[in-house]
């Protein structure tokens, strides 16, 4: 009996300890999310009534498809590029070349400094009067490149901001790799490229995957980068903000409907991504 009571008391204590976390979750995430969902089902500007009009309007608008496609194009291509950048980079850093500490720190910079600072710097650097165009026009004597406010430019900026997730996770996986496995492969007759292709890459694939998921998540939800550097290209996040900021009165219901669509897309895509890519390693 006393044992039962003690166990009871222990579970109550656990519950009490968990409660701040869940209170925070419920109050600061779940409740706002619900408010957003409810708002999205209200007619614009009214506090009563239920309607699907906002969703119908959003999903049938001609621009919507472009917005969604843009959001995915930006997120997916920057994720793929982050892998392309991270794999050679981490393979080099793993060898601890001269100055590798400096480069490790460099990898951290984009996720430590405020996104805005990076965005601003990139705009200036790649701008029509920036160093890149200076190099192109004065050294190469080629016509100016338009990078700012274009989709490839945005992808480049996304890459700058979000590749560290892929790189750091890949690096951690790579450094956890047992060197003797690679030595075994080379003794068995595999040259460097074959060791990489048959042994190292398959073994770090889970790490690359885990990192690229993070990069994808960050890129999909990215707000401040496209807000400052997007120009006329507005991915979902910026389009939502526009509903509140650029319309008077603010279109809360429309914005909310778009938010809900975004959350659903994110969760759906993530679960597909995880399921599809996790299978080969099961």
């Amino acid at each position: 009996m006393s044992d039962f009571l003690r166990r009871q008391r222990q579970s109550i204590l656990t519950l009490l300890m968990l409660s701040p976390g869940f209170a925070g979750f419920l109050g600061l995430f779940f409740y706002p999310m619900m408010v957003t969902v409810v708002r999205s089902l209200r007619p614009e500007g009214q506090e009563v009534g239920w309607t699907l009009a906002n969703y119908i309007e959003f999903l049938s608008k001609p621009g919507t498809r472009q917005v969604i496609v843009l959001t995915f194009v930006l997120a997916i291509s920057s994720t793929l590029l982050s892998i392309v950048l991270s794999v050679p980079l981490t393979l080099i850093l793993r060898e601890k070349p001269w100055g590798h500490r400096f480069f490790r720190l460099t990898v951290l910079i984009p996720i430590t400094v405020p996104g805005l600072v990076g965005a601003l710097g990139l705009l200036v650097f790649y701008g029509s009067r920036g160093w890149l165009n200076l190099f192109v026009t004065q050294v190469l004597h080629l016509p100016k490149l338009n990078i700012n406010y274009t989709v490839p430019g945005l992808i480049l900026f996304y890459l700058w901001h979000y590749f560290p997730y892929t790189a750091l996770t890949t690096l951690a996986t790579l450094e956890g790799l047992d060197r003797s496995i690679e030595e075994a492969a080379s003794v068995a007759g595999a040259n460097d490229w074959q060791v990489l292709r048959h042994v190292v890459l398959p073994l770090i694939a889970p790490g690359i995957l885990a990192g690229s998921v993070l990069t994808f998540m960050a890129a999909f939800g990215s707000f401040s980068i496209p807000l400052v550097t997007g120009g006329n290209y507005r991915p979902l996040s910026v389009a939502i903000y526009t509903q509140i900021e650029s319309f008077t009165p603010a279109r809360w219901s429309m914005g909310s409907a778009m938010s809900v669509v975004m959350a659903i897309l994110q969760v759906t895509f993530l679960s597909i991504y995880m399921r599809v890519l996790r299978r080969p390693m099961a």
């Binding site: 003797s180 496995i181 040259n191 073994l203």
Partner: peptide
């Protein structure tokens, strides 16, 4: 280079390819 030396090697920690 190692891969052209035609050797066979057994490792302390086995070093099998886990995948």
């Amino acid at each position: 280079p190692t891969h052209k030396r035609e050797l066979g090697m057994v490792f302390q920690n086995f070093a099998l390819f886990p995948h």
